[in-house]
Design a protein around this nucleic acid. Structure first.
Lengths: 246, 246
DNA sequence: AAGCCTTTGTGAATACGCGCACAAAGTCGC
DNA sequence: GCGACTTTGTGCGCGTATTCACAAAGGCTT
C-alpha cells in the first residue's frame, strides 16, 4: 500500500509492516491478561503461545518497535504494554461516533471493548425519528441531520457505520466531508473514499462464506475434494439463480 | 497453510489461494447488485471497480475457478454468480447455531445476511436462565446445557460464538467435541482448536486499534510521523499502565 | 470474409510475509 | 569472576500475493 516510504528510515521508527500492526492488538490483549495475573516477565515463547502465533514471528514483530526484550530473560510485561499501546496510539483518547442504531449499532454502543481501550463513544446517530431521543447504554440517540455538527463539534475522528447497506455510502461521504479520516464499516458494501481516508470492513456474511468454503472441502473427504465439475456445461443454465437468491 | 496438496492437480479444481477465497464473497455481492439492476454482462474492469480491487487480480482470481469469461465481451453475470456460489459451497444450506444471546448475539440473530446466503440459524443458546424461552427474531432461546443434543440433532456445522470472553474457550471445546468443524468467534480471545477445525475471528476492538494506529500516523503530519521517541527511557516507568487500563 | 477492436487469461517481475536456525547478548549458579 | 544456559534479535531461503504487460481469442463492423 505504501511501499515508497519504507526506505526513508531504516526499520523501527517508521514502516511497521501492516501484518505486524494487525497483530499488535492481539499481543496487547494477551499482555493485559498476564498483567491481571500478576506476571511481571514473559518470554517470546509464552507470549506467542498466548497470542496463537509463532514465537519467531512475535519476536520479529516486536523488533519493529525497538529492542524491548532482555536476552536470557524475556520481556517486561508492563513496559511492553506501554510500548505497544503507544505505538498503536492508545495512550491518547479517540472519539468515536456510531451511525445507525439498529440491532448491531446497539450492540456496538454497549460493547465494553470501546471504553477499556481509549475509545470514547461520543455520539449515536440514526435517521429514524422514533429512535431519536431514546437512551441506549446511557446515551441519547441523536438525529443524523446533526451529523456534521456533532462530528466537528465533538472532534470525532473515527466513525463506525452500522447503517443498512443502502445508506452506507452516503453516510460515509458525509462523515468524510465533515473531517473523519478513519471509518469502520459494518454495512455490507464496498465504500469508496478519497485518498488519505482509512476504511476497515467487518462483514459477517463474508466470514461465514469463507467458513462454508472450507467446510465444503472438508466434507468432500479428508484427502481432497473436487468441486462439482468445474469445466462442464451445466444443464439448464437459467434456473441456477434461484439456488442462491433470497 | 496447506502447501503440500497444491501440486496434486494443476490449478483450477484444487488449491484456490486463500487470498482469492476471501475475495470471492465480495465479487459475489457485487454481482448480485448488478443482477438486481438487470445487468447481463460485466467486464473485469467494471466488476473490479465495484469490488474495489485491481482488475488483473480479479481476472486471476476468477481464472482459478476456470475460464468463465468471453474475450472481447466479459463475464455473464448470472453464470458467474452460479460458479462462485458453487465454489463457495452456497448452493447447499449450512446450519448455524449462535451461542451467547447478549447484545451481539441478538444482533446476529436478526441479521438478514444469514438467510439470504444459504445460512440457516437453527439454534440460539445461552447460559442465562432468564433468557431461555424468550423469543428473539422468531426463535426461542434454548439452554446451553442442551448444546450437544442441539448440535448433533440438528446437524449444525457452523457455530457462532458470541459469549463473553471467559466462556468462549469452554463453549468452543464443547461445540468441537459435538462435531462442529467451523467456528466464527466474536469473543475477544484466541481460541485453540484441534487440527481440522477452522476458526475465524471477528474483533471490533482490534479493528479500532488498527484504525487508531493509522490515525495517529496521519495526525503526525502528511509526510511522516515519528512515534514518540521509541528508544528512550521513559521517566517514571511505573505509572504508564494507568493510561491504557480500564 | 477480413480486419479491427475489445477484453480475457497468464507469464514474468516484484514485493511481502513467514519461519528456521543461529549468533549475539545477557543472566544465574557456583 | 567465570562458564553454562537461556532467550532475544535477525539473516536467509521459501512460498504466496500482487501487479504489469501482452499475446491469444473472440465479436463486430464494414
Amino acid at each position: 500500500m505504501t511501499p515508497r516510504q519504507n526506505r526513508t528510515r531504516d526499520r523501527a521508527e517508521r514502516g511497521i509492516p501492516e501484518a505486524t500492526v494487525a497483530r499488535l492488538p492481539v499481543y496487547l490483549r494477551a499482555l493485559h491478561t498476564l498483567q491481571e495475573r500478576g506476571v511481571a516477565t514473559v518470554s517470546s515463547e509464552e507470549l506467542a503461545a498466548a497470542a496463537g502465533v509463532n514465537s519467531a514471528k512475535l519476536r520479529k514483530d516486536l523488533s519493529h518497535l525497538g529492542s524491548y526484550g532482555t536476552r536470557g530473560v524475556g520481556y517486561e510485561v508492563e513496559y511492553l504494554v506501554y510500548q505497544i499501546s503507544r505505538e498503536l496510539g492508545l495512550t491518547q483518547d479517540w472519539v468515536v461516533a456510531i451511525i445507525g442504531v439498529g440491532n448491531l449499532g446497539r450492540a456496538l454502543a454497549g460493547y465494553g471493548g470501546f471504553a477499556s481501550r481509549g475509545f470514547r463513544v461520543a455520539g449515536l446517530l440514526d435517521a429514524d425519528e422514533a429512535l431519536v431521543g431514546q437512551e441506549i447504554s446511557g446515551m441519547a440517540v441523536e438525529h443524523i441531520d446533526r451529523l456534521e455538527e456533532i462530528i466537528s463539534g465533538r472532534r470525532v475522528s473515527i466513525a463506525v457505520i452500522a447503517t443498512p447497506a443502502g445508506a452506507a455510502q452516503k453516510v460515509c461521504d458525509r462523515v468524510v466531508a465533515a473531517g473523519v479520516t478513519s471509518v469502520l464499516n459494518f454495512a455490507p458494501v464496498v465504500l469508496s473514499v478519497p485518498d488519505g481516508v482509512d476504511v476497515r470492513k467487518v462483514d459477517l456474511s463474508i466470514e461465514l462464506q469463507i467458513l462454508a468454503f472450507h467446510e465444503q472441502r472438508k466434507a468432500g473427504g479428508p484427502d481432497g475434494y473436487a468441486p462439482p465439475a468445474s469445466g462442464e456445461d451445466p444443464p439448464g443454465a437459467a434456473q441456477y439463480v434461484e439456488a442462491v437468491e433470497a
